[in-house]
């Protein structure tokens, strides 16, 4: 392969890899297993698929990390491409949340739908107090945005230990956020199947929470890598990707806080 001899171009000719095929198998098993579970069966097939997916993700990204450190594959232009790819991926994620916000506004505002209820929250629904735990969570996430930025500054200064410390703090803040959200979910008076308010609330905040967990894991991995001194001031694509993802998660939360928690809980739509 080209990497065995001098490449005459700066691009990464990736060696053949089994992870895409095995990953697809995992997705397929998750699909069949998911349907099995949803139609009353056990969850084991789905769980198997999920575990395979976790393993494939681990092996695939482990390969990427190794390639980034072999001195050959990740040239400047390849790193630029990776950053571009991450930005594009995040753009697609924005559109995913766009769908849930659309559903939320369609369901809650009469101007968008003939069937939106006269008041929002609908009669009988007791919303969460936006200025209690949700506001605390906003502070937590905004702070975590700051801590990851401090980590970045430390990284640019070449201070691996400081980078790791700020990353760890970010991870802890992320975990705290998730903990508080879980608490709220358990203590909310409206259940998952409670109608349109519940549906829009739990799906929008739930997918956000899922993305927080993914982002936290990503930052955790970066913490470990920072401690192992993988990142240099010139080359730290993985860190940037995790940080951007985290900021995206933060921005989605701000929209959720303003529109779902604050506006949505205030009875702003005239009854």
């Amino acid at each position: 392969m080209a990497s065995e001899q001098t490449k005459k171009h700066p691009y990464h000719m990736v060696e053949p890899s089994p992870w895409p095929a095995i990953g697809t198998l995992a997705a397929f098993i998750m699909a069949i297993g998911g349907v099995w579970y949803m139609k009353g069966g056990t969850i084991y097939l789905f769980a198997t698929g999920l575990l395979i997916l976790f393993w494939v993700s681990y092996r695939w990204w482990r390969d990427v990390v190794a390639e980034s450190r072999n001195g050959v594959d990740h040239t400047n232009v390849v790193r630029l491409g990776l950053r571009m790819g991450m930005v594009l991926f995040i753009a697609s994620e924005v559109m995913f949340f766009f769908a849930f916000f659309w559903a939320y506004f369609h369901s809650s505002m009469p101007i968008f739908s003939l069937v939106a209820p006269e008041s929002w929250p609908p009669k009988g629904v007791v919303p969460l107090d936006a200025w209690s735990v949700p506001f605390l969570n906003t502070v937590i996430l905004l702070s975590s945005g700051a801590t990851v930025t401090f980590a970045h500054h430390a990284l640019l200064q070449g201070n691996a230990k400081k980078t790791a410390r700020w990353l760890l703090l970010t991870v802890l803040l992320g975990l705290t956020f998730t903990g508080f959200q879980a608490y709220e979910y358990v203590h909310a008076t409206f259940t998952f199947t409670g109608g349109i308010y519940s549906s829009t609330f739990y799906l929008a905040t739930g997918f956000h929470g899922f993305h927080v967990i993914v982002g936290t894991i990503f930052l955790f991995v970066c913490w470990r890598r920072a401690k192992a001194e993988h990142f240099t001031p010139e080359a730290h694509v993985g860190f940037e990707a995790a940080a951007w993802y985290w900021h995206f998660v933060d921005v989605v939360w701000l929209f959720l806080f303003v529109w779902v928690y604050w506006w949505g809980g205030s009875g702003a739509v005239a009854g």
Binding site: V115, P117, G124, T193, G195, S198
Partner: peptide, 12 residues
């Protein structure tokens, strides 16, 4: 009927 939103869940 325009449903009362958040009426008790339909039994599934």
């Amino acid at each position: 009927k325009l449903a009362q939103a958040d009426a008790p869940a339909v039994a599934r």
